[in-house]
Amino acid sequence: MTPSRTLATTGRVLSQIRHDPRTIALLLLVPSLLIGLVAWIFSETTVFQSVGPAMIALFPFIVMFLVTSITTLRERRTGTLERLLSMPLGKGDLILGYTLAFGLLAVLQSSIAVLFAITVCGLDIEGPVWLLVAVAVADAVLGTTLGLLASAFARTEFQVVQFMPVIVFPQILLGGIFLPRDQLPDVLRVLSDWLPLSHAVDALNAIATGSEDDAYVLGELLIILAWIVGAVILASATLRRRTP
C-alpha cells in the first residue's frame, strides 16, 4: 500500500461522482429531505424531538451503503477491478481510497443533515453540535465500509439490494428507533448491543438530550470506528487478485 495510490483512487472516485449529478443529489440532499419529511409527519406532536437524532443516523447510513456497494460492484462488473488488481495497486489502496472518497462526502452530507435538522426542522440539541456531526459522519462512513464489504459477496446490483434486508434492516429494527433498546426482550437487546447502528443511535440520542457526558459518546464513537476498521480490513482481505 502507498499513500499516492490510495489518494489517486480517492480522486478518481470523486471525479466519477462529479460527473453524476443524480448521485450527488442522492448523497447530499436526500437524507436531509427525508429527515424533513419525518419532521413534517410529526409536526403536530413531540415525536420528532425523540426520533430526530436516530433519523440522522438512519438515512445517511442507508444511502451510503447503497451508493458505495453499487459503485464498487460496477467496478467488478466492468472489468476495471480485474485490471487494477493486475497492476501494482494494493487491495488496501482500493478499499481505503473508496472509504476516503465517501468519507469526504459523508462530512458534507452529515453537516447538511445536522444543520437542516436543527435550523429547519427545529431539533433541539443539548450537547455539542460538533460531536453530533462527528458521530453522524462516522455512522455514514460505517454505511460506506459495510457497503464495500457487501459488494464483495454480490455479483449483480440485484444481489446488492438483497443485502439490505440482511445487513441493514435488522439494524434499523433493533437500533432503538421503534422501541428504546432497554425495553427490548433480553435476547434482542443483547443482539442489538452487537450491532453498530445501535451505538450510533445511542450516541446521537445522548448528545441530543444531553443525558450522558462526552466520555460516553466518545466510547460509542470508538465502537463505531472499530467496526469501520474491521470492515475495511475484511473488505480488503476478501478481494482476490485471481478469480475462477
Binding site: 478518481r12 471525479s15 472489468g79
Partner: peptide
C-alpha cells in the same frame, strides 16, 4: 476483451 475503463471519466 471488453474495454475495462471508467465510462464516467
Amino acid at each position: 476483451q471488453d474495454a475495462s475503463v471508467y465510462d464516467d471519466l
